[in-house]
Amino acid sequence: MDIELTYARGLLRSIGDVPVSYRRREWLDSTPRALGPWPLVYQRFGTTLRSVGDVEITYRKWSARPRTVGQWSCECSRFGARLLRIGPYELRHDGGGNRVRGIGPLEVFYDRLGTRPIRVRLHDGSRTLPDDLLLVLFLTLFWQRQEWEAARRSDD
């Protein structure tokens, strides 16, 4: 099954049938505020995501790398350069390690420039994307985008 990721004005708007919502003045704040029915809660005065619905996220000390997502633990590479696993879902990266190419049974496809994920393919034969896999997909794409934006800012 293929799941399309749709964008408008450079912002992710939906993952399949699940909308990603923003504040009314999104040009001032491009931080997503809801994933479908789940509100996204951030650290006060920051963009560190603290919870998606009732699923709490904790981070490693002095790092933007997640330690837990709900009851799942997260695994990072040595020195924390890459996120390798969220709970039961292994993340597979391309050769350079910059893009996530797979998440558990999902395969991630990018646009021609390789800068925007546009589609995911679910390989387990399901007809719908389970909520836990939707959550992991969203978090992976969200954190990847944050990393890319931080790297772009540091290059300036």
Results as ranks from 00 to 15, higher is better:
residue 1 M to R: 15
residue 3 I to R: 02
residue 3 I to S: 08
residue 4 E to W: 05
residue 4 E to V: 10
residue 5 L to S: 01
residue 6 T to S: 15
residue 10 G to S: 07
residue 11 L to N: 05
residue 16 G to Q: 00
residue 16 G to N: 02
residue 16 G to P: 00
residue 18 V to R: 03
residue 20 V to F: 00
residue 21 S to E: 06
residue 22 Y to L: 04
residue 23 R to K: 05
residue 23 R to A: 05
residue 24 R to K: 11
residue 24 R to N: 07
residue 26 E to F: 14
residue 27 W to I: 11
residue 28 L to Q: 12
residue 28 L to N: 12
residue 29 D to M: 05
residue 30 S to E: 14
residue 31 T to M: 09
residue 31 T to D: 01
residue 32 P to A: 07
residue 33 R to I: 05
residue 35 L to V: 01
residue 40 L to I: 07
residue 41 V to S: 13
residue 42 Y to E: 03
residue 47 T to H: 14
residue 51 S to N: 11
residue 53 G to A: 12
residue 57 I to C: 03
residue 57 I to V: 12
residue 64 A to G: 07
residue 66 P to H: 00
residue 67 R to Q: 14
residue 68 T to G: 01
residue 69 V to C: 04
residue 73 S to C: 02
residue 75 E to I: 04
residue 77 S to V: 01
residue 77 S to Y: 03
residue 78 R to K: 06
residue 78 R to M: 03
residue 81 A to R: 13
residue 81 A to G: 09
residue 82 R to M: 05
residue 85 R to K: 12
residue 87 G to E: 08
residue 87 G to I: 09
residue 88 P to K: 04
residue 88 P to R: 10
residue 89 Y to C: 08
residue 89 Y to W: 15
residue 89 Y to E: 12
residue 91 L to T: 06
residue 91 L to G: 04
residue 95 G to D: 13
residue 96 G to N: 07
residue 97 G to K: 05
residue 98 N to E: 15
residue 99 R to W: 02
residue 99 R to H: 05
residue 100 V to L: 00
residue 102 G to N: 08
residue 102 G to V: 10
residue 102 G to F: 09
residue 102 G to I: 10
residue 105 P to K: 08
residue 106 L to G: 11
residue 108 V to I: 15
residue 110 Y to M: 07
residue 112 R to Y: 12
residue 112 R to L: 13
residue 117 P to K: 01
residue 126 S to L: 13
residue 126 S to Q: 15
residue 127 R to N: 09
residue 128 T to A: 14
residue 128 T to M: 12
residue 132 D to V: 07
residue 133 L to F: 01
residue 144 Q to C: 05
residue 144 Q to I: 00
residue 145 R to G: 05
residue 148 W to Y: 15
residue 149 E to L: 13
residue 151 A to W: 12
residue 151 A to I: 13
residue 152 R to M: 11
residue 153 R to E: 14
residue 156 D to W: 14
